Simulated scan of single mutants.
Amino acid sequence: MELTAEERIELHGFNNLTKSLSFNLYDICYTRSKKEREAYIEYIDEQYSADRLTNILQHVADIIGAHVLNVAKQDYVPQGASVTVLVSEGPIVEVPTGTYEESPGPLPDNVVLQLDKSHITVHTYPEYHPEEGISTFRADIDVSTCGEISPLKALNYLIHSFETDVMSLDYRVRGFTRAKDGHKLFIDHDINSIQNYIPDNIKETYDMIDVNVYQEHIFHTKCKLKEFDLNNYLFGYSKDKLDPKEVEAITEMLTTEMDEIFYGKNIANSILQ
């Protein structure tokens, strides 16, 4: 049973529905030497340190209306970081009206609603290939909530918090809660696509595909940057320092890397000679 904004159903106890958002993002860079690769990894580890990631997740908690109970964070050697935030809030006895309009959520400094017994995690994976000249940064973020608010409300802010070339987004509603008359509720809001929670100006810059299983309340969206400025992918210099053949070859390598991540399969590699 899906609730509309006009309906107001009194629940039997706490809303036990679990809503989970998995947000995987990739940032890609061309690094032509060992020195550049090491400098890129150092930059990523500084840019997305455990402290900065903790700050991002605390903003996520604010956006979804959560009270932070505990934070565990760790910077790893030689690279990468992890943060886990446990959050909680008092129970809500009714499904509120007007909550589930499909639209991008706020950027930080807005508290939307309350939720209970939830967690937010992030793990980062900077890596590079020693020969092919491509360095990739991946961040995996999970926002899991128990209660009436969807973690999708934090998606807009998360997208703005990272430099993202490719995104893979998964959203699922699990379990059920009960109305006071005993009727099971397997979802308490309308949704037809994760894309409805992404701002139009962001959607215009990405190619997107959906794979949704509506009857199982499973939603999947993949996004790949349509166009890019090569200068943003060179570490320590600009493309005017390269000859046209190098520009073409590097552009092809970056495009192939994005395509392989987006489609989830290997494509014939272009090697810069």
Rank of each mutant, 00 (worst) to 15 (best):
T145I: 13
S150A: 15
L155V: 12
Y171H: 09
S168Q: 07
I159N: 02
D181M: 13
S144R: 15
D165V: 11
L185H: 02
N156Y: 10
S144V: 14
H160C: 11
V166F: 05
H183Y: 13
E163R: 07
F186C: 00
V173D: 00
T164M: 14
H160I: 15
V173H: 00
T164R: 04
A179W: 05
K184A: 09
G147D: 05
G182F: 13
D170C: 14
D181F: 14
K184T: 05
V173Y: 00
P151F: 09
D165F: 06
F176R: 05
E163G: 13
G182Q: 13
I159K: 02
L185E: 01
E163L: 11
T164E: 06
D181Q: 14
G182S: 15
I159C: 06
P151C: 15
I159L: 11
S168V: 08
H189T: 08
R174H: 12
H189W: 06
S168R: 10
H189F: 14
D188T: 04
F186V: 01
K184R: 08
T145K: 05
S168H: 09
R172H: 15
A154M: 07
N156D: 12
T145Y: 07
L158R: 02
N156S: 09
A179P: 06
F176T: 02
L169P: 01
L152K: 03
L169V: 10
D170W: 12
E163C: 10
N156V: 11
F186N: 00
G175L: 05
P151R: 09
M167I: 08
L185D: 01
V173R: 00
A179L: 13
T177V: 08
M167V: 11
T164C: 10
F176W: 11
G182A: 10
I159V: 12
R174I: 02
I149H: 03
F186R: 00
Y157R: 04
F162K: 02
I149N: 02
D165R: 04
